[in-house]
């Protein structure tokens, strides 16, 4: 019996047992999910999904009738072949410019292949991912900007900036993001004639700005008073001291909460689907509606969000390591 007790208290045995437990739990989760989906009588069709990410666009452009080429109009990467038949009726064929194999004045016959091509095109999910990425990057940049200045205003001793900042922060934190998006779309967007993209980006930036302001305020306040005093005693103005002494130290300290805030922002961007922006979640819903393969679609959507948020986490960890040289 002594040997069993020894074994249970052996740190190496405990470590191995813990790993085993982890594997068993994960395997259990997978098996459980599999079993559940069997019971709900769902037909998995994963093969439906890839074409919504990338699909091959293959086209053959054939002449519909005998005619003569009268003009080649280049527009962007495409060329419009203008032809006239014997009744002087014009028809148009649009083909990629690099594939044009006819010249002005040339006769073409019915069924002649004017161009044939295959191109990879982004599917609805990839388009949604790109839009989500654009909205997130813009909102994060604008959110940092708004948050920094609101945070500084919040710390001001002068009443006007201080109370404006407090009012803004409380207003934004006290109302739902979804309502703010509607207000930005229906009210602000109408008044200033904003596109729904701009309305969405502004709503998200203003929302993030309020939280970022509080993060900046806490970060600046966490820097020891002596740092500001030392900088000021060297003759630096408040602004110089903030820029070169306080903010660099504060920024390093607030990176983790800031990263958390921006990961939230990426996820919150799914709400701008309500103002007709086909970002990732909305794209998923639309595909779900047309294919009724909701399970696969939303698992894929979730995985795509994970790619974005995980990349951001990695970036922040990289920055933290770089800033750590002075510790």
């Amino acid at each position: 019996m002594g040997s069993l007790k020894d074994l249970l208290h052996n740190p190496r045995f405990r470590h191995a047992a813990s790993w085993t437990a982890l594997v068993v739990i994960l395997a259990g989760l997978v098996a459980g999910t599999f079993h559940t989906t069997k019971r709900v009588d769902y037909i998995w069709r994963w093969e439906q999904i890839p074409r919504y990410v990338l699909f091959k666009d293959s086209r053959v452009v054939e002449a519909e009738d005998d005619a003569t080429v009268v003009a080649l109009d280049v527009a962007g990467g495409d060329t419009v072949i203008v032809v006239k038949d014997y009744l002087d009726m014009e028809s148009y064929y649009e083909v990629p410019s690099d594939l044009v194999n006819v010249a002005v004045g040339q006769e073409i016959t019915r069924g002649q292949v004017l161009a044939q091509w295959e191109r990879w095109k982004p599917g609805l999910l990839l388009q949604g991912l790109v839009l989500t990425l654009e909205i997130s990057v813009l909102s994060i940049a604008l959110g940092i900007f708004i948050g920094l200045f609101t945070g500084l205003a919040r710390l001001s001793k002068s009443p006007a900036p201080k109370w404006l900042a407090i009012g803004y922060i409380e207003l934004i934190r006290g109302t739902p993001l979804l309502v703010q998006i509607y207000i930005f779309y229906f009210f602000v967007g109408q008044v200033f004639r904003l596109s729904n993209f701009m309305a969405g980006v502004l709503a998200l930036s203003v929302f993030a700005g309020a939280y970022v302001a509080e993060i900046f305020r806490a970060g600046i306040q966490s820097i020891h008073r002596g740092q500001m005093e030392a900088a000021r005693s060297l003759g630096m103005s408040y602004a110089l001291a903030m820029r070169y002494i306080i903010l660099p130290q504060a920024f390093k300290r607030i990176l983790p909460p800031l990263a958390g805030q921006f990961i939230s922002l990426i996820k919150d961007s799914s709400l701008v689907g309500v103002i007709a922006l086909v970002e990732l979640t909305r794209a998923g819903r639309e595909i779900g509606t047309s294919t009724i393969n909701y399970f696969e679609v939303f698992f894929t959507v979730a995985a795509l969000y994970l790619i974005l948020t995980f990349s951001l986490s990695m970036l922040v960890q990289f920055l933290e390591r770089r800033f750590a040289v002075s510790d």
């Binding site: 020891h224 005093e229 030392a230 000021r232 003759g235 103005s237 800033f323 002075s326």
Partner: peptide
């Protein structure tokens, strides 16, 4: 005041060096 302070050097009990700079 910044111009005056530039002419008056101050050394603190807790050093107050800027930790993020060499």
């Amino acid at each position: 005041i910044n111009a005056v302070r530039a002419e008056v050097g101050m050394v603190f009990q807790s050093f107050n060096l800027f930790p993020h700079m060499t």
